Every structure is written in C-alpha cells, then in structure tokens.
Simulated assay, not measured.
Amino acid sequence: MSDGTHLTVEDAADPAARAAVLDGLIAFNTARTGPGTFDAQPLLVVLRDAGGAPIGGLVGRNRAGWLYVELLHIPESQRGRGLGRRILERAEAEARARGLAGVWLETYAFQAPGFYARMGYTTVGTLPGCPPGQACHFLAKRLDGAPLEAP
C-alpha cells in the first residue's frame, strides 16, 4: 500500500491489535446508534460445587441492547436436574433488570437447540456445515414476550 500500511496474518492474540479493531468498531457503531449501545457489561451466573469452586454456568454480556450468551455449560454429572433452565432464567431476569430487549445466543446442532426451543427461543439463523457435518444455530428471545420480527 502506497502510504506504508501493510497487512499481517498473526496467530497470537495481540491485545493492542484487538483493542484497535474493537475500539474503532465501537466508535463507528456508537456514532450511528448513540452512546452506551455497545457498552459490554458482563453477566455471569455461576454454578458452584459444595466447596464454592465454579463447575459451570453462563457467561454473557450486554451487546447492542440485548444480552448475548457467549457460553453456557452444565457438567454432565449435573444435567437433568433443571439447572440449565434455572441458570438461563436467572440470566433472563438480570437482562430484564438491565432493561435489555432480549437474549441471543448460538448453539451447535449436537448441543442444545431443543433445550432453547423449550425455553421460548426462536431460531433466527442457521449456518450449515459449521462444524463439518453439523450446523450452528442462532437463537433469540424477546423478554417482553413479543414475537421476533424480521428485519
């Protein structure tokens, strides 16, 4: 490039490079949507063992006026006891308290799309072949009970 800029491909996570991309994107988005829309307040609902050690739970964050559930895991030894439902309900209650419109997440076909459907989530997109031979499903749920609208 004539001004001296150049591209590199890197395997290591460079915090300065990530910050440059994230900060630039947030500034661009905020200029179009207003202050605070892309503030990323974390939310964790942690499942702990009898000794207090974390063994599972939910990790999410506010994202564009919705709660994005990044991770949800229940150890196999703890499944079938309603813990996934209770954890997700706690996260939804906190999202309501934060004034968020809804919750969205992604799950693989071999994970829990049926669980989320039973919890009132709607599939809003599917990426076939991710991972190979499977599919990644994107699901969402409005917290006011209104149906999801097509864009």
Rank of each mutant, 00 (worst) to 15 (best):
E76D: 14
I74R: 00
E70C: 04
T37S: 14
Q111M: 05
R85G: 05
G52W: 10
E89N: 13
A93V: 13
Y68P: 02
G24M: 07
R85F: 07
G102R: 08
R96T: 06
S77P: 08
G82I: 10
R32D: 08
A95C: 08
D49R: 01
T33R: 15
L47Q: 03
W104E: 04
V103Y: 05
I74F: 04
R81C: 05
L7E: 07
A40V: 15
R79K: 10
L44Q: 15
D49M: 03
P54H: 02
A27E: 11
L88A: 02
A40W: 15
T33P: 07
V59R: 02
T8E: 09
S2W: 03
G114A: 01
V59P: 00
F28C: 02
L71S: 12
A97Q: 15
D23W: 11
R86S: 11
G84L: 04
Q111S: 05
Y68I: 06
L71G: 05
T5G: 04
L25Q: 15
Q78R: 15
A91V: 00
A31Y: 09
I87W: 01
Y68G: 02
A64C: 12
L100M: 01
E106K: 04
A95V: 03
I55R: 08
A117F: 11
A40Q: 15
R79Y: 04
A64R: 07
P35F: 14
A50D: 13
R90Y: 00
A16D: 13
G82P: 05
G84T: 05
D39E: 15
V45F: 10
D11V: 04
T8L: 09
A95Q: 05
E89T: 13
L88W: 07
H73I: 06
A17G: 13
Y68R: 13
A53M: 07
G4C: 00
G80K: 09
G60N: 00
V9P: 00
A19I: 06
L88I: 08
G80T: 06
S2I: 03
L22V: 13
V59N: 01
D3Y: 03
T107Y: 09
V46M: 03
R118F: 07
E92T: 02
I87M: 08
V59Y: 06
